[in-house]
């Protein structure tokens, strides 16, 4: 929390200063949102195996407040696009993205989702950013669990620092 605390106003009483802190509402909202990410894993391919590993006890995504998979896009905050997106599944991905309620974020997990990876051919979409906007790219084929955790931290940083619509 320390990052949120700003120096108390000069004329505040002592007791008030130990019970009250001031911050921007935007920041508070960011702080709350970044630690309660409901995620929708859109798992298609091999990267899903590493996603599984990351979510399980060895690497434990739970530590970062993002362990709650919601398999309904309407309840999710962040969609992880995990694996190769072919042209056949692309419209499905777009629909799911559009079904999600704002605010929403997109993580592109692995080389395939980010740029097509090893598959430069007739069947594969060359990066999901040609279809939906992406917030965080995680490199690797597949990314190691450590890289996934790093990507999650990056996303949280982004959420903390972005401007939040709250009206």
């Amino acid at each position: 929390m320390s990052e949120l605390i700003q120096s108390p106003t000069m004329d505040m009483t002592r007791s008030l200063s130990s019970n009250v802190m001031t911050t921007r509402f935007d920041k508070l909202l960011g702080w709350a949102r970044k630690y309660s990410l409901f995620q929708y894993p859109f798992v298609t391919a091999c990267c899903g195996m590493e996603f599984m590993s990351t979510a399980c006890s060895h690497y434990d995504l739970d530590r970062f407040g993002a362990a709650f998979p919601r398999f309904s896009p309407r309840q999710a905050d962040v969609i992880w696009v995990v694996g190769t997106i072919s042209h056949k599944i692309a419209p499905v991905l777009k629909t799911i993205y559009e079904q999600m309620a704002d605010p929403k974020w997109v993580v592109s997990f692995g080389a395939c989702a980010s740029c097509g990876g090893p598959y430069d051919n007739y069947a594969t979409v060359q990066g999901i950013d040609t279809i939906i906007p992406v917030d965080v790219y995680i490199a690797g084929c597949p990314p190691r669990p450590e890289a996934v955790l790093d990507g999650l931290l990056k996303l949280q940083e982004l959420i903390q620092n972005q401007k939040h619509e709250w009206k």
């Binding site: 042209h87 056949k88 692309a90 430069d120 051919n121 007739y122 060359q126 040609t130």
Partner: peptide, 29 residues
């Protein structure tokens, strides 16, 4: 079975170029 009905041609034929895409949405390449 593997591709979609909108796809034209048969990709494993030797005269079908490997990177000839026929996307359902998004940019051509």
């Amino acid at each position: 079975i593997m591709l979609y009905e909108e796809f034209e041609g048969h990709p494993l034929r030797k005269d079908y170029p490997k990177t000839k895409r026929q996307p359902l949405m998004g940019p051509q390449n």
